[in-house]
Amino acid sequence: MQGEEPNHYPGPIPVEDVRRRLFGWEAVSSPLYIEDPRGGLALVPGRQAIVRSDNGHVMGVFSDGYERHPYGEWLIRRIADLLDSDLWIGSAGLLRGGAVAWVSVEVPENVRTPEGVEFRPHLFGATSFDGSLATTFKRAVTNIVCDNTMAAGLAERGQQVKIKHSRNSRFRLAEAREALHIVHALADGFSQAVASLCRTSVSGRQWDAFLDAHVPMPDQPGRGRTLAENKRDTLARLWNHDLRVSPWRGTAWGVVQAVNTFAHHEQNVRGAERAERNMLRAVTGGIEDLDRATLRTLSGVLDRPLTLAS
């Protein structure tokens, strides 16, 4: 299904392959015209369309104040400015016909905690030409057992830097380095968070209470009740029997893992392929919102805050 050139590499993805295979075109600013009812075309003042140079695909329409952030410059050169030489590209891709792109830079080896959680820290760089995303650099974690993306800070924010597509926005390298703490510092912080959550017990009764809060059951029969029942059944199966979750059953980490795994691999997907939906949620922040919402709900059930190290 991958054509003549596969999309998996046995080691680091060469930077030049990312440039050639993904970013080998330009996002061109084009004047915007509309059909004139008197005949011909009329220029729309103060507006521009951002168009792919290779196939003419219109990715977005903006005011003249919109500033393009070319993928090669912002997702390769800017990340190179942020990082050390012992980090490499682990994944990169285009979404929405090229209107959204990301590059993930990772450490070469996985990290395994004493609790048996194996993960790989990485830095996401993502931006868009359709207005859906400011240029974003953020730390994240890939959970190896289920190939899930998880929030790097879990309960904390401040793990990302955003630059708007405006002429007054600037990339400040020193500020970005300080805010992100770069990838190496992520392993210790995430390991401490995992340990804290694994030490937090969740009884069978508390798990049932979490399900009641996370997936409320409608009083009246119908489609909503059926969907809620199916979701609760799937979460229970993950909690009790799935090796991506059940080794940590009875802990707060198991709760986070169950909800995150459900969202990645079990939840119904409409209007997109699952892999694209998952990556869009990773680059736009949906996964961080999910993990933190899970912890807030669980904190309410346990009636105490979940304090995590970062």
Score class of each variant (00 low, 15 high):
L82T: 09
M59Q: 14
S128Y: 05
G65W: 00
C146F: 09
F129D: 14
E115S: 14
V103L: 07
L173E: 07
G158T: 13
Q160S: 14
V117D: 10
S63V: 03
L83V: 15
V117C: 01
A92N: 00
V100W: 02
L180Y: 10
D147L: 07
S128F: 05
A155N: 10
D64M: 09
A126F: 00
G90K: 00
M59W: 12
S91H: 04
G116Q: 04
E178R: 12
P121S: 04
K138L: 11
A126R: 00
A152E: 12
N168G: 11
E118P: 05
V141P: 06
G93K: 08
T113D: 10
T136P: 05
S169V: 05
R77N: 08
S169L: 00
E175F: 08
S132R: 08
V107M: 11
F171R: 02
T113F: 07
L87Q: 09
R68I: 15
D130F: 06
G98C: 03
I144Y: 02
L123R: 06
A174Y: 02
T142I: 14
H69R: 15
K138M: 13
R68A: 14
L123P: 11
D81C: 09
L87F: 05
R177K: 08
F119Q: 08
M150S: 10
I76F: 00
Q159T: 15
E175T: 14
F124D: 15
I144M: 07
H69Q: 15
S104T: 15
R78N: 09
R170C: 08
R177L: 02
R157P: 09
G116K: 00
D86S: 13
A179M: 06
H165T: 10
L82D: 13
G60H: 01
G97T: 03
L75P: 04
L95Y: 02
A134E: 11
L154S: 10
D84Q: 12
H122G: 13
S91L: 02
F124E: 15
M59E: 14
P108N: 06
L154N: 08
L133I: 08
S91Y: 04
D81G: 09
L180P: 11
L154V: 06
P121A: 03
R177V: 06
V111I: 10
I76V: 15
V107T: 14
N168H: 06
G131A: 08
I79C: 12
D64Q: 12
V107P: 00
A126S: 12
T136K: 07
L75E: 11
R172Q: 13
F119S: 04
T142H: 02
D84N: 05
R68P: 05
W102P: 01
E118R: 07
P121G: 01
Y71S: 09
G98P: 01
A92M: 07
